[in-house]
Design a protein around this nucleic acid. Structure first.
Lengths: 170, 170
DNA sequence: GGATATATTTCAGCCCGCTTAACTAATAGG
DNA sequence: CCTATTAGTTAAGCGGGCTGAAATATATCC
């Protein structure tokens, strides 16, 4: 395990399995709600950024504005999304999760949190501590990437979407 | 961070962001391949269990056998999947990734591995070590759960799918 | 060996997401 | 103001996944 190459393999595998499990879990949950994956994806996006417009959805999900508009319409009808006029630009809309929408998302996360919590509980206190620290770093890093992506999306840059992973100061 | 409650929150958040990022990445990748998510899901399943039949797909993906059969047909035509007769039961089929299918999956994982590797590179050697250990535990745990689920799926148990997370010996 | 169960395929039909294209409404620039 | 430009909606039509039902072929159980 001291070998950096083997360590990399170990971490990759762990991340792959985590992702795979999370995927299946989410798929199951979404199906149970009666929503479709694209619909749920929009709710997820709105969970992570508080509010945004139709065009942002379109960019983020890689679909046309028309498609985004149609999906949003369904979610609004389902009372999962609130769609109001942007007071500073009356052409644009502001989307936001309704309490019902928020609750639905949290229900989805809950399944994941259950096994994550169970896993944490099994760690030694010292391991637990370290794990927390490392995941805090991970959170920080992923947030940075998120910012970066949003900055690159919003303006009309045709500079494509290959956001670089922030480098350490090494 | 010493507080167990806050630590739990930290870890949950980190896992959520990891999952969210992995999702988006995967969605993008799948779209770029021209496959659909359900199709890709089947390839993924076959990546994690070496070989299985149509019914297993049906169970795993929560779709009817008919749907599974149709999806598999498309993947076979795309030369991503090999479908042979099970010699021990000539009604059943054995599915397996072709080299082309394997390569495709690995391409999908590669994007994730890039940022995971970059992240590892930024950790202190000691942190790195600990992270590796914890993820190895995670791998072990998730594998257990996987086994458990498969065992519960294969036979005709109508005991539904709420596999319990293995408890520690605490 | 004949009834029954199992594994898979095939087909018709529905729903849904997606795109293109035409349209409305509001902002921005001159 | 008058023309672009931008944000979003709407409708037609395609393609794909999914289901239910009917069909086939093999295995299993008296």
């Amino acid at each position: 395990m001291t070998d950096i190459l083997q360590l990399t393999q170990t971490v990759r595998l762990g991340m792959d399995l985590i992702t795979h499990r999370a995927f299946r879990e989410q798929a199951r949950f979404v199906k149970s709600t009666g929503l479709t994956m694209p619909q749920f994806g929009i709710l997820m996006q709105l969970h992570y950024r508080q509010r945004c417009g139709i065009s942002d959805i379109s960019n983020h999900m890689d679909i046309t504005i028309a498609a985004a508009s149609q999906l949003v319409e369904k979610l609004v009808q389902g009372e999962l999304l609130e769609r109001t006029e942007d007071p500073s630009d009356r052409r644009a809309k502001l989307l936001k999760l309704t309490p019902k929408g928020q609750a639905l998302i949290e229900g989805g996360l809950a399944a994941r949190h259950r096994w994550v919590d169970a896993f944490i509980a099994r760690l030694e206190p010292a391991e637990r501590e370290k794990f927390g620290e490392v995941l805090a770093m991970m959170t920080h890093t992923l947030r940075q990437v998120q910012e970066q992506e949003r900055a690159a999306e919003s303006p009309h840059e045709q500079a494509r979407s290959n956001p670089t992973f922030p480098r350490g100061e090494s």
